[in-house]
Each structure stands twice: as structure tokens, then as C-alpha cells.
Design a binder for these strands. Sequence first.
RNA 1: GCCUCUGUAGCUCAAUGGAUAGAGCACUUGACUUCGGAUCAAGGGGCUGCGGGUUCGAAUCCUGCCAGAGGCGCCA
Length: 599
Amino acid sequence: MFVQEQQEIEVRIRAYCAEQGIPLNEIKWSALPFSGEWGISTSFFAAAAAEARSGKSVNVPQRAQEIAEQAAGLIRNVAGIARVEAIKGYLNLYFETPIYARRVVDAVLEQGRDYGRGAPKGERVMVEYAQPNTHHSFHIGHARNVVLGEALARLVEFAGFETIRASYPGDLGLGVITVLWAYNKFYKGQEPQGVHERGQWLLKIYVEATALLEPKENETPEEKAQREAYEAERREMYRKWDAGDPEVRALWQMTREWSLEELRDILRLLDVKIDVWFFESEVDEPAKQIVEELIARGIADDERPSGGAVIVKIDEKLGLTKEKYRTNVILRADGTTLYLTKDLALAKIKFEKFGVDRSIYVVDVRQSLHFQQAFAILRLMGFPQAEKCYHLGYGFVSLPEGAMSARRGRVVLFKDVIDDAVRRALAVESAKAPDLDEEQRRQVALQVGLGALVYSMLAVDNNRDMVFDVDQALSFDGRTGPYIQNAHVRANSILRKAGQIPQQAAFTHELTAHEVTLIDLLARFPETVQQAAGEYRPLVMANYAYDLANAFHSFYHSVPVLQSESESTRAARLRLVAAARQTLANALALLGITAPEVM
RNA sequence: GCCUCUGUAGCUCAAUGGAUAGAGCACUUGACUUCGGAUCAAGGGGCUGCGGGUUCGAAUCCUGCCAGAGGCGCCA
């Protein structure tokens, strides 16, 4: 934001240090850590320590303070700097607030929705997320995946990357076949009405089927015979599916579509627009080709002649002596492909067909070894993009009563949580905003309910496991989505009453600490976007959004806007409120949370 | 056996080598005839799992333990 001034100061400090023979490396600026103060600071410990290492006998903290004092002397008369201080080895620069306040607020209002957007980086990135299996219903664990992936996609896009959103549902495998078998045997021809009813029904069938197929303790000979008969039927179903039996394929297509309909509805609810759909069933053939390619190129070893599988000895091929990536099977002895094989084929498609430079996988952390192996094999295959493949793993979501288990039907369905969230939001809303019409009330309740849920999932670092507690996830008080949305609503409310936003304002009034804190945060938004995107961490933006809302709420309470003491102060504060509203909206948008006008 | 992640206030979590380790929830107290109280202001609450080390400086990096979770060639 203040690049020119900062550079001028750096030049002076560098020139001085060079003259004095002080070994100064880089000058790292950071924001002043004092609340209500606005400026930047740097420290000289590194330079002092370097002197100490070079043989001079110096007390490092003392020497750092000396250098800071001397540096402070150089900056007494720089335009835009109101005050300079050297303290405890730090050099603190306090900004001249009228100049900077105006500059920040003008920039936000000029750029509007684009405030904070990074310059194009000339790189294409694909974010793969939303990979639930079909023939199940969408639960709260899947929601963490989608919420995280969407926030990440929005962040990298806004930061300047050309971004492609990809979904990769698992639409084949034993779980899918199990549902087909049970449906065909017990429910053939039936079909519940309603998108979510159908999706959830498939899960019920799966749970029932699993119970029938699982060995029980102390089972009687009859029970055992029954179970084995079922098992044989399921195997037969798998065989028919594999052989492309038209009837089984049609059944598969129909039920698969039920699941995908539900998935699409949930994505629509979360405002997720997937650009490219990959299906596991569609990469099966390319995967088999990859196997041949890897054998031909000497990367994979074919042990089929001796009754084995096709394997890649990754460590050996990379020349590693210590066990790291180990050895992995890429084709079973029976000639069928595996998850890893398909991911290799899919990566090749991403690189070659979609021209992806950088590939991010938002997948459960339990698969981190799998992705390390996949990336290592991609390196062996010579893809330069392999270096820019990144697995964003996230901890799994469990329930207060223990791990979720689709097999046992012990899951919390996303749809149920959302319905609950809307109910709760409606209850609060009818007390807080009684004059909304029915349609608007419904819409706001959905925005607020979703805001609470989404924020609760983004406010925990991705590598941590999470226990999903409904009351906590759907809380509207404190550090929550609705708290941030409410700041936006309040800002909006002031501006609505004001009628219009003044075209310009000089910030010449005495700024309160609350105003300074708020403007400081607004100024930091662009760099926060870059940090969050660069580290692939939506949490960084989630924290920022809360801090900004918090600063606004405090400002709101203690600083009058519409009843400011003078017209010029009123104009400045109105523009500040407008800038805060805009930045809150931009930050929320990056998290995938809508910013309502009223609530 | 090997590898990865986690351990911070009563609870849920921030803080990725810098200044006095911060929020929310819960608890106590105060603030609506004034821009919306889904809010604000204030208070108590800490051996950052334990021991060593590196550094001017460590919750953060290294190392050894302890505790929890996860992963490790024909599941996905």
C-alpha cells in the first residue's frame, strides 16, 4: 500500500549501514502490533547478531537498539511518517493518518469487488475437490471437503491464478455394487420422490445390505448359508457390471444419477460451480494404458508372469536407499486397475488435456502417502508439473459419539444439518428482524445458517481432526459466520440511512483508535489474500474476516457516524463504513459465505 | 517395526523465529429515550504434554521421551 515511502526509507537505512559497515541483510517490515496504532516496524537483531558472529564483542539486544536509534534519526523528516521511535531493538514508524486513511478508503471504494484482487500470475491451477462416492448420501465429512475446496479455489482465483474447479466422484467399486445388488433384490422398481429422499434412500439400502453381508457372531448354519448366498449374488452382480451387462449397467446409471442429482443440488446450495467432472469409471481405460506405458518405459515391473501384479518400486527407481515411498501395485494380478493407477491417468489428463501448471488435491489426510506416491511416480514419468502438485489434506470429521461410519449408518447428513441451521436462523430472525417478508426471511435464514456452518468448518486449521458438534457449528454468537455477516448488515444499515455515500472525503479529523484499527485492517486485505492463497490456507482468510468484523463492531459502538460532530467528519466516516462493508463482503465471498443486506 | 499429524486457558480453537501467547464458549459485572444488543466494554482464568539442544530471541526449528489419531505393494 505504501511501497514508495517504504522504499525510500529502506534506501536511507541501507546507505547508512553500508557506510558504517553494519551487516544488514533484508529489511522485513511488519505491522505495528499495538492496537489503535498504525504503522510498520522492523528490527535489527539479525544485523547485531551478524556483527557478534563476525568477532566483535557486542551485546546483541543492546546493539540492535543502538542501530534502531541511529536508523530512527535518518527518518525524522520523511513525508507521511508522523512519528518514529526506536525501542527494544525495533524501529517503529507511525503513519500520518490523514494521508493514508484517505488513500486506503479511496482505493477500496474505487476497486469495489475487485479490491484485493491480485495481478494475473500467468499460471493455470486446477483444484480437485468434491469427490464423494455415488450411491451414498452426502454427509458432514463431505461438506468439510467441499467447503475447504471451494474457499481455496476462490482464494487462488482472486489471488491471480487462472482456476479450474474439478470434481471426481467415485462411481464404481464394491460399495456401489453392494447397493445395486440390494436394490435389485429387495426394492426393484421403487423410487422415492424428491432429490434428497432418493439420495438418502441409497444410503439406507447400503446400510441394510452391509448388515446382511457381514458375518455375525454366533451365527447359525442357516444364517451362514444365507449370507454366503447373498455374497455370491453380489459377486455375480460385480461380474455382470464388469462385463457390461445392459440391464445392470442401466440400473447402475439410474441409481448413479440419483446420487449425482443430490450432489448437484448441494453444490448449488453452496454456490459451487464445478467446471470439469471426472468420473472414476471414465479413467479406468486410460489407467490401463498408463500401466502399459510404465512397463514399456521401465518404471513399472511386471510380475504377472510369475502370478503377481504390476508394481512400481518407487524408492528404488528414484535411487533412494531409505524407505520413503515404498513399493506400490498399479495393476492387480487379475488385470484390474487401482485407485493409484486411476490418479496417475487423471493427472496425465489434467496436464496434457487441460494444460494445468499447478494441481491441488483436496482430499482426506489419510491419503497423504497415496498422493506422495502418485506425485513421485509422476516425477518418474517426467512431468515437470509434478513439482507443483499439492495434496491439501484435512483431518477427518467425527461425531461426539465417535467416528462416522456409512456402513453402520452412523452419519450426520449435510441436508439435515442445513435444515436445522435454517430452522435456528429463522427462530432468531423472527425476533431480530420481524418486518421481513416471507420470501426474504427464508432466503436470509439460509444465508445465515449456511454462513454459520461454513465458517465453523473453515475456522479450524485443515490438518486438524474435527469433532462435529451441531450446537457449536450452528452457533450464531461470537466468532462465527453470522457475527461477520452482522457487521456487514450493520454497515449496510448505516449507509442505507445516510442515503448516499459522499464522493470524497479528507480524513483531517482527529481519528479515534477504533478508526485507525479499522483502516489498518482494510489496508492489509490484499496481502492477506496473497498469503492465504500462497499457503493454500483458507483459515488465514477466515481469521482476517473475523478480525475485520470485530474491528467494525467496536468502531460501530463507540464512534458516531451519522451524528458526527462535523460534516467533513461525517463524510469521512461514511466512506470508511462503505469501505468496511465492501471489504467484509469481499472477504466473505472468498470464504464462500454470502453477505446479506439485512438479517 | 517404519512414517505422518496432533498436544496451547475448564471447553473449542488462533498465533509458522520476534515486543506483554490471543479469541470464542462458559463464568462474573456493566452498556439500548442515541446509526440494529446475532453487538460492545471490563474481569478472573496459562510451567504452550515433559526433558535436553540451537538462537540475541522458541508455542514455533532440532532431539529424546509421554499421550492421542492416522498411514504402510493387489481397499478407496
